[in-house]
C-alpha cells in the first residue's frame, strides 16, 4: 500500500541549500511509487520563478530540474495563492510545469495548482508523511 508523501517547501533558493537538496529527495522518492505532492508556500514560491540565472554566482541553476518533475510522475504541485500575492507574484512569473496525462491520451496538462492557504491546510491534513525543507 502506498503512502501519501507531501514535500513542503518554504525557503527561497540559493541563500541556503534546502531547496536544492529537497528537490533531490523528491527525484529519488519518485522511484518508490508513493503518492507524491509538493507544496510551495512562503518564500518557497521563489523556487519556481522564471528567469533564474546563476552563472555569475558560480553555482548551478537547478530551476530547470523542476520542469522534469512531470517525467517522474510528480504532477501535484500546489502553490499557495496568498504567498504568491504577498510577494507581488502571479502564476505568469512561475516556470510552466507540465505533465502528460496517461489517462487522457497523454494530453499535456499543468502540474501547478494554485490553492488558498485554507485549501493547503486540508491538503496537508490528508497526507501520511510530511517532509519539510
Amino acid at each position: 500500500m502506498s503512502k501519501r508523501f507531501l514535500y513542503v517547501n518554504r525557503k527561497a533558493p540559493y541563500g541556503t541549500i534546502y531547496a536544492l537538496e529537497s528537490l533531490e529527495v523528491v527525484l529519488i522518492g519518485a522511484a518508490f511509487e508513493q503518492d507524491v505532492s509538493l507544496a510551495f508556500l512562503d518564500d518557497g514560491v521563489f523556487q519556481l520563478t522564471r528567469g533564474q540565472q546563476t552563472d555569475e554566482l558560480g553555482v548551478k541553476n537547478f530551476s530547470p530540474t523542476y520542469k522534469a518533475l512531470g517525467d517522474y510522475d510528480v504532477n501535484k504541485i500546489y502553490v499557495e495563492r496568498e504567498s504568491l500575492e504577498a510577494r507581488g507574484l502571479s502564476l505568469d512569473d512561475l516556470l510552466p510545469l507540465t505533465y502528460e496525462d496517461e489517462d487522457d491520451d497523454w494530453a499535456e496538462k499543468d502540474s501547478i495548482k494554485l490553492v488558498s492557504a485554507a485549501e493547503l491546510a486540508e491538503i496537508m491534513q490528508a497526507q501520511d508523511v510530511v517532509l519539510s525543507f
Partner: peptide, 9 residues
C-alpha cells in the same frame, strides 16, 4: 536518499 523514503514508508 532512498533510505529516507523507506523510513517514511
Amino acid at each position: 536518499l532512498g533510505q529516507l523514503i523507506d523510513a517514511g514508508i
